[in-house]
């Protein structure tokens, strides 16, 4: 039942548009000052990782909230974006910026094709097929026959001619250079998701999720909207993939692995599916926690415990749960005891 009450709300449009828009713009602008505020490159690199994970989580949360489809294997599209960029610059010989744009477009086309086959399946089958797709691509990039293009299990070093907005390929290894790109991408994809969710397409999608048969009786096509939503989520993962290739300067078949997919899915669930900020914050929180536990070698164990605890205890996500608990706690602390409806 909780799920119903969440999904019947659109992503909060809110009253008083103007202050919110101003606030969002201010946050966006302030974001660029982050590298100057954090003089530690280490913290910034975790933030970078967190935002990349957050972008992936955003795609998953969008598809889960709007369509009820669980994109378990988002690593497929993430990896296609990263490999697309690496191959286009190396084998294709394209300069950085066109290669990045083309790689994202190719990833969008790829997710459109994949979606055309799989959005018709049942939700559970859908979840498992996307999982299998990631494994398929992981094997495909490592088979010896394609070694000339993908360099097999060794992976590829990312290198491109020219510059992207004045930066050369090695500049991106610096977290402070990378930050504005990933920040812009996170805010841009967030805005895009918000716009789609509040459009006619978003409303149609949520109605299909509630009752697909009824929507068909009412004369709505149920196939195309879901295909579009799926392609959108895939393209967003492609953006994250290209950025990942830039940030690490390296792509390998592990990008397609289960670990990427589960981390992103968990970030989405941890953050909460019903908002834009939730998955992104979930991504940052998750990246920080992974860094902490990964250093001890317990990242998989942590992931397992996190998924059980979050789903059992906080089904609406960490951000929403804290958001409902914190004001009450603060109010009690301040002795006001006000009710928030």
């Amino acid at each position: 039942m909780t799920e119903l009450t969440i999904s019947s709300q659109p992503l909060r449009a809110g009253s008083g548009r103007l202050p919110r828009v101003a606030l969002a713009l201010a946050v966006f602008a302030l974001g660029f000052a982050v590298p100057a505020l954090l003089d530690q490159g280490y913290l910034l690199s975790i933030l970078n990782k967190g935002l990349l994970l957050g972008i992936l989580a955003l795609g998953i949360a969008f598809l889960m909230h709007q369509c009820g489809l669980v994109l378990f294997g988002i690593a497929s599209f993430y990896g296609v974006g990263a490999y697309g960029f690496a191959i286009l610059t190396e084998t294709g010989g394209l300069p950085g910026l066109p290669a990045a744009i083309l790689a994202i477009a190719l990833c969008g086309a790829f997710s459109f094709l994949v979606g055309a086959v799989i959005v018709r399946t049942r939700p559970l089958a859908f979840m498992m097929i996307t999982l299998a797709l990631g494994e398929l691509l992981r094997h495909l990039t490592s088979i010896p026959e394609l070694r000339g293009i993908t360099h097999g299990v060794d992976g590829m070093i990312v290198n491109f001619q020219g510059t992207i907005l004045g930066y050369e390929v090695f500049d991106f290894l610096d977290p402070a250079v990378f930050w504005p790109f990933v920040w812009t991408a996170a805010c841009g994809t967030g805005l895009m998701m918000w716009l789609v969710a509040n459009s006619m397409v978003g409303r149609t999608l949520r109605a299909i999720k509630e009752n697909e048969e009824r929507m068909r009786f009412c004369g709505f096509g149920t196939y195309l909207p879901r295909l579009l939503a799926f392609s959108l989520a895939g393209s967003i993962a492609g953006i994250a993939g290209v950025l990942q290739a830039l940030a690490s300067g390296f792509v390998s078949p592990e990008l397609f692995g289960l670990v990427t997919s589960t981390n992103a899915l968990l970030a989405a669930i941890t953050g909460g599916l019903a908002s834009i900020a939730g998955p992104v914050l979930g991504g940052v929180a998750f990246a920080a926690a992974l860094d902490e536990f990964g250093a001890l070698g317990y990242s998989q164990l942590f992931t397992g415990i996190a998924v059980v605890v979050v789903i059992v205890a906080m089904p609406r996500g960490l951000v929403v749960t804290l958001g409902t608990i914190l004001p009450g706690l603060l109010a009690r602390f301040a002795g006001k005891g006000r009710d928030d409806a």
Binding site: L124, M127, T303, G304, V307, V308, I311
Partner: peptide, 26 residues
């Protein structure tokens, strides 16, 4: 977890699987 959505329960079993597998490796 009977009242929860099936996808959520599937994810919980996935998490338990990760914990079990890690325990075995440990």
């Amino acid at each position: 977890l009977n009242a929860r959505s099936h996808i959520e329960v599937a994810l919980v079993t996935f998490g338990i699987g990760l914990i079990l597998a890690h325990g075995i490796i440990w």
